[in-house]
Structures are given as structure tokens and as C-alpha cells.
């Protein structure tokens, strides 16, 4: 798939396994901004398996631009100072497969582009990580012109666009398999 003349073969991934809980999640990992931040938004949802049962041992990471569409290259995601927006978050789902991030609505990185949040999914039982995108629902024209979304069926597209709830939060569920299976992504350079 790659147009690169790739010289080295990538190392294979493996499952995160069951015992990451004491190693990877960290204090304030899920809080890209403080809840008191004026533009703070709750991004939340549930991870489901192929029977529609919540997956209690999954870890999610997000990576996104700030409200102005700027990509942060600031350090400090692991030890947050409460002021610097680093764009990265990590959360372990709870016993009911639910997660919450506190973040901001990303702006478009280029004018007219549909803003989205990158999401990476890890879980016990999932042999390699999965990539997907969480699109904001508001800019319908940009969504209609998005190169990825415009190539999807209505049902597939619906799995990638978050729902804006009455309280302003974004809801995005992940379905690893089965009804409403989330569209996961492959990028050039990795099969």
C-alpha cells in the first residue's frame, strides 16, 4: 500500500493483555484540560464486544488538535501542569466498559476540513491496536466533503461521527465487532 520505498519490516504488535492497569494509566491521563476550563467538553462512551457486551479491560488513547486546530508539540502529557494543552490523553475503561475524557472540541487543522479526534483502542483479547477517528457532528458540509467519510455507507459513517448530547458532551461508542461495528483504519506504511 505504501508509496514509500520501505526498507525495514515493522515489528509485529501484540495484545496489551490483562495486566496493564498498574503500568499505563496515570493520574489525569483522561483530563486533557481541567473540567473548569471554559471550553471543556466531556467525551464519553462504552466499548462493546461482538455480543454487545461491554468490554471492561480496554484502554483508549486520544490525540487531537486544540480548539484552534493547532497541533500541540508540548511535552507534559504524563505529568500535567493544568495549563498546557498537549493534545494526548489515555484512559482505562471502567468495570462497565465506559470511559470519559475531558478535552476541548478540536478545530479544523486546515480551513474547511472536518475536525476529528484520533482514537486508538487496546484491549485484552485484541491482538493489535485499532485506529479510528471521532468526528465532531456539527460541520455537515465539511463532513460531506471528508475523503474518508464520503467513501463510506451511511451505517459505516455513523460509527465515526460522535453524538452531541444535550449537555454539550460528545458520545462515541466503540463496537469491536458485530452490529454497528466501528470502522477502523489502516494507513500507508503498515499493511
Amino acid at each position: 500500500m505504501s508509496e514509500n520505498t520501505q526498507r525495514l519490516v515493522p515489528t509485529p504488535g501484540q495484545t496489551i493483555g490483562p495486566f496493564y492497569g498498574y503500568a499505563l494509566p496515570y493520574e489525569n491521563g483522561e483530563n486533557l484540560v481541567d473540567r473548569s476550563h471554559p471550553g471543556s467538553v466531556r467525551l464519553h462512551g462504552t466499548v462493546y464486544d461482538g455480543h454487545g457486551v461491554p468490554v471492561p479491560d480496554s484502554m483508549l488513547e486520544i490525540w487531537q488538535a486544540d480548539e484552534n486546530g493547532k497541533v500541540s508539540q508540548e511535552t507534559g502529557s504524563l505529568i500535567r501542569d493544568g495549563y498546557t494543552f498537549t493534545g494526548f490523553g489515555r484512559v482505562a475503561v471502567d468495570n462497565e466498559g465506559q470511559y470519559t475524557f475531558t478535552t476541548v472540541n478540536p478545530g479544523p487543522t486546515e480551513a474547511g476540513k472536518a475536525p476529528f479526534i484520533c482514537l486508538t483502542v487496546f484491549a485484552r483479547g485484541l491482538l493489535n491496536r485499532l485506529f479510528t477517528r471521532i468526528y465532531l457532528p456539527e460541520d455537515t458540509e465539511a463532513l460531506a466533503n471528508d475523503p474518508l467519510l464520503s467513501g463510506l455507507s451511511e451505517d459505516e459513517r455513523a460509527t465515526l461521527v460522535a453524538t452531541r448530547e444535550a449537555d454539550g458532551s460528545l458520545r462515541f461508542d466503540v463496537h469491536l465487532q458485530g452490529d454497528g461495528e466501528t470502522v477502523f483504519l489502516a494507513y500507508p506504511g503498515l499493511e
Binding site: D49, G50, H51, G178, E181, F184
Partner: peptide, 8 residues
Amino acid sequence: SILRHPTK
């Protein structure tokens, strides 16, 4: 992995 892999 049986119920936790995408089918597509």
C-alpha cells in the same frame, strides 16, 4: 479474541 476482533 473471538468476540473482540473486527470482522471487516
